[in-house]
Design a protein around this nucleic acid. Structure first.
Lengths: 143, 143
DNA sequence: CTTGCTGCAAACAGTTTGCAGAACT
DNA sequence: AGTTCTGCAAACTGTTTGCAGCAAG
């Protein structure tokens, strides 16, 4: 499954005429080995520890490519950092964010998705994308 | 209704022991006269044109106060700028954002809100806040 | 007179960009 | 060889902060 994602990215790269480089391989490996919602900085540090010499810019540029290839999805929570999560096509989930401990819980709700489609079509919109975040306190942080 | 919002802010200010200043009055007036979803920069320019000498920092600081007082609500669309919209308590709406022309359409859906509350309680969350944005193309931009 | 508020500039954080050299094909 | 990619540092953008002077209570 990790392997299949690598293949997916490689065929995207081939199609686009992108070169296969050591850095992109490393970043892809490490990204695929992470948990969800990693920030660029976190990923950069993780990469740096095993591969000093890889620059910030490369990480930013490469993650943009992953997003373009459909392998990753950019998400913006309310903390001013760009995060990336693994994306598999079709599937989509939303987030419950605890403002106490920064835990993020994912959920999916087909009824909500359906209502969204209805609202969009009522306004003549063609949906590309959507996001929904619920902010609050998780059971632990409510004390 | 604008007057009543001013009163609301004034009583918030009084409660908090904040001083009443010329700048805050001006910013409040201009903010209340704007359309929804104004970015800090847009508001700053608008203010500056009739009141040169008001600084960036004051606008930022004052908008934070408005948000704290419940008069305004911070929103973050995908363009890296903080925007503010008018808020009246209780009421909440979500956004359909056209990625073609940047039009923003507001909507409200009580069923979705209800489902959100259900999801949150299923995970033991206490909701403070939530946001939902649907990105796509509006009827005009679909051509 | 005391303390909070303002404006300015400098600091900051996250991200992007220009460029010379390195590395793919 | 030709061109893309990388790493670095510098540039940029949006926002915050420190501070001296100003103004409200």
């Amino acid at each position: 499954m990790i392997l299949e994602k690598k293949k997916a990215f490689n065929s995207f790269a081939a199609e686009k005429g992108l070169r296969s480089t050591r850095q992109r391989d490393i970043i892809l490996d490490i990204f695929l080995s992470t948990h969800q919602h990693i920030s660029v900085e976190e990923l950069y540090l993780k990469i740096k520890s095993s591969n000093p010499g890889i620059g910030h810019a490369t990480v930013y540029r490469t993650l943009k490519l992953f997003a373009e290839s459909g392998l990753a999805r950019e998400i913006h929570l309310h903390d001013g950092q760009t995060r990336y999560e693994h994306a598999m096509e079709g599937e989509h989930h939303d987030h419950l964010v605890c403002t106490g401990c920064d835990t993020i819980i994912e959920f999916e709700d087909e009824t909500i998705e359906k209502l969204q489609r209805e609202i969009a079509s009522r306004h003549g919109f063609k949906i590309n994308n959507h996001k929904m975040e619920i902010y609050g306190l998780c059971s632990d942080c409510r004390k």
